[in-house]
């Protein structure tokens, strides 16, 4: 195959690990022309006309599911939503059967969120349709990683050389893993900061720095990506109380003001105001949290377009029906 016209992604988007800087940049660049679609009065282009996409959500999700759905609809795909949140369906054998049934209905793409790490790979290995991982357990959430990259690039003009610290519950976070892989591939310096009970083992072997004090992290970083602290972590005994978490690791205006540079603050949502992030930070000048949400739709359009065989350099033309 001619590398110039080869699809920049393979069949699936399972994770950002093992993705090259060129591939990541191609996705981010492809997202650029798609941003404008959402600003139109009639937010619809024929890029994926005739494609059937199943949004298969085994775990509750509002933001990610809606973002994918908007991306699909604005590209004119036909979509079906399957929400299977609850306990009885999160079984492996159901996943096998679900995969076979979807395959039998001759669909084109599956966007899946699942509580088990590896579920996206599992599905991708078993069906010929394109699989997009919308979050698998604590493994990866690649489109969140991509939209974070795009948002950082929008505001700082580059990724390379930036110091980005991911703050909070790294252990259970698929967002953290996708961010780490994507940022490292694009040449950023990456650190994590959080309670030692919520940092995975061997984090340093991933090539990231580790801070346990938030003030040290803020002093070091150009960008903070603040993760949600799930209430279950307190119940699981990882941190004694949310109040204590806020006191020790919370990102507050007072802490940001002590920093010598103008930090960019991201948060994948949904936020626990007053726990991992204070409202004056979330709503303040450092925050690009709503830009992330807007970029999420564009990035997901880009991923769907590329997986469907689209070429990055033809995205602009495809939008206008040139390659419908």
């Amino acid at each position: 195959m001619n590398p110039a016209t080869a699809a920049p992604l393979g069949k699936d988007l399972v994770g950002l690990e093992n993705m090259s800087a060129e591939q990541l940049t191609a996705i981010l660049d492809t997202a650029e022309p798609f941003k404008e679609i959402s600003e139109r009065r009639i937010k619809k282009v024929p890029v994926l006309r005739g494609k059937t996409i199943v949004n298969l959500f085994f775990e509750a999700s509002t933001r990610t599911r809606i973002s994918f759905e908007f991306a699909e609809k604005r590209l004119s795909a036909d979509t079906v939503n399957i929400s299977a949140s609850g306990s009885s369906v999160v079984k492996g054998e159901t996943l096998v059967d679900t995969a076979r049934n979807l395959e039998a209905m001759r669909i084109d793409m599956v966007v899946m969120r699942h509580g088990a790490s590896g579920a996206a790979q599992f599905l991708a290995d078993r069906i010929p349709s394109n699989v997009v991982n919308a979050g698998d357990g604590r493994h990866e959430h690649p489109t969140q990683g991509l939209l974070d990259l795009l948002t950082i690039r929008d505001h700082r003009g580059k990724i390379e050389g930036l110091k980005v610290c991911i703050v909070g519950d790294i252990l259970h976070s698929r967002v953290a893993r996708s961010n780490i892989y994507g940022l490292l591939a694009l040449g950023a310096e990456v650190a994590v900061c959080g309670p030692p009970t919520l940092l995975p083992v061997a984090t340093d072997e991933l090539g990231v720095q580790v801070f346990t004090h938030i003030d040290d992290a803020i002093r070091w970083a150009d960008v903070l990506n603040v993760l949600r602290l799930q209430l279950e972590r307190m119940e699981g005994g990882y941190v004694p109380s949310l109040r204590e978490y806020n006191r020790v690791w919370g990102v507050t205006n007072a802490r940001l003001e002590a920093a010598e540079r103008d930090l960019l603050v991201l948060h994948p949502g949904p936020m626990n105001r007053g726990v991992e992030i204070d409202s004056d930070v979330a709503d303040g000048p450092h925050s690009v949290i709503l830009n992330q949400v807007t970029n999420g739709v564009a990035v997901r359009m880009a991923v769907l377009y590329l997986l469907a065989g689209g070429q990055p350099e033809r995205a602009e033309a495809a939008k206008e029906g040139g390659e419908g």
Partner: peptide, 14 residues
């Protein structure tokens, strides 16, 4: 429990 479990996002047994 180790670098592979961290990468795969699977809880480990130390």
């Amino acid at each position: 429990e180790g670098i592979v479990s961290t990468r795969l996002g699977l809880p480990g047994k130390p």
